[in-house]
Structure formats: structure tokens, C-alpha cells
Design a binder for these strands. Structure first.
Length: 152
DNA sequence: GCCAACGTTGGC
DNA sequence: GCCAACGTTGGC
């Protein structure tokens, strides 16, 4: 399968591009949406590029680049009774939730804001700019990815 | 902090 | 299997 490109959202209060820079790699755990899980479980391959998006913050937008460093493994937080991500249906034999590992690539010199994405006609089909779009992991096309890199 | 939009849950 | 009620996301 060819390499894909993705956009992954995070609230910087919980996990930011700077946190990833410090840690170098991190499991993208805590995702509790089936569509997002399925992208991680089925489609995300080692080496895929990721646009790291900051939500619920000023400025909202794409803060930098990450990449997939490991394909999906069972999300460890689902087994942790103390975690808010605990999943009582999950067993080690039959996990419910999966996550990939992501690695830091670089932080943009500046955040490419949601407003700019909305204003660029080349990006009019991007999911992230659509009203009410909550999906936290979204596929991005090659041309959208290149356009965004050119906006930095 | 508000609240529209969405996904999930659970009673029927 | 429908759909109202609920909880969460995320822009503003």
C-alpha cells in the first residue's frame, strides 16, 4: 500500500507538538471513536506523514509534522481501571481500541491557522475545515499536504 | 464558557 | 431497528 498522509488533532493542554518533540515518540492513545480507530488499525503505515493539529487553543491550526513510527498496537489505556479511557469490554485477547506510535519530525516556524486553511481554495475539500467536523484523525491528500507545506 | 453538531447508548 | 437522550468535541 502506498504511503498516506494524515491529520491528527490534539488539544495542546493534553498533548502538544512540543510534548512530542520532548518525548520524540508517543503512542496516540485515548482515541475512542471507531472511524479514527479504523484509520489507525487498518490504514496507517510506518512512515506515513502526519499534520499535527492543535484544537481548542489560540491559534487553532497545524503546528507541525509528525510521522507514523509503529503500526497499530492495542491501546494500553483501555486496560487501566484508573484511566478515564478504561474500557470494560476489552480483554487482552480481544482488545477494543488500538493506537499507532507517532514520532516528532518538526515544528512549523508558525502555526498554519484554520482560518488560512479555510481561505485557500485548493483546500476547499479538506474535512478539517468543514463545520461540525469532529473526527480526530483524517486522511489528507497528497496535493493538500503539499499545499499546506507551501503555506508555512 | 457557550453551545451546535455529532457519535453513542439504551429503552422500547 | 428506531430514535430520544445523553455526553463529547471543538470553534467561537
Amino acid at each position: 500500500m502506498a504511503k498516506n498522509t494524515w491529520l491528527m488533532k490534539s488539544e495542546p493542554d493534553a498533548f502538544s507538538i512540543d510534548d512530542l518533540k520532548k518525548q520524540k515518540t508517543s503512542l496516540w492513545d485515548g482515541v475512542r471513536n471507531y472511524q479514527a480507530r479504523n484509520f489507525m488499525m487498518n490504514d496507517m503505515k510506518k512512515g506515513d506523514a502526519i499534520l499535527f493539529y492543535h484544537s481548542r487553543v489560540d491559534p487553532i491550526g497545524i503546528a507541525g509534522i509528525a510521522k507514523v513510527t509503529k503500526t497499530a498496537v492495542p491501546d494500553p489505556t483501555q486496560f487501566n481501571k484508573k484511566s478515564k479511557y478504561f474500557e470494560k469490554r476489552a480483554t487482552k485477547e480481544k482488545p477494543v481500541w488500538y493506537c499507532v506510535e507517532v514520532g516528532f519530525v518538526r515544528k512549523f516556524k508558525r502555526t498554519i491557522t484554520l482560518q488560512e486553511l479555510k481561505e485557500n481554495p485548493k483546500l476547499s475539500n479538506m474535512r478539517v475545515i468543514q463545520k461540525g467536523q469532529r473526527l480526530s484523525i483524517q486522511p489528507v491528500t497528497e496535493s493538500e499536504y503539499k499545499t499546506i507545506l507551501g503555506m508555512e
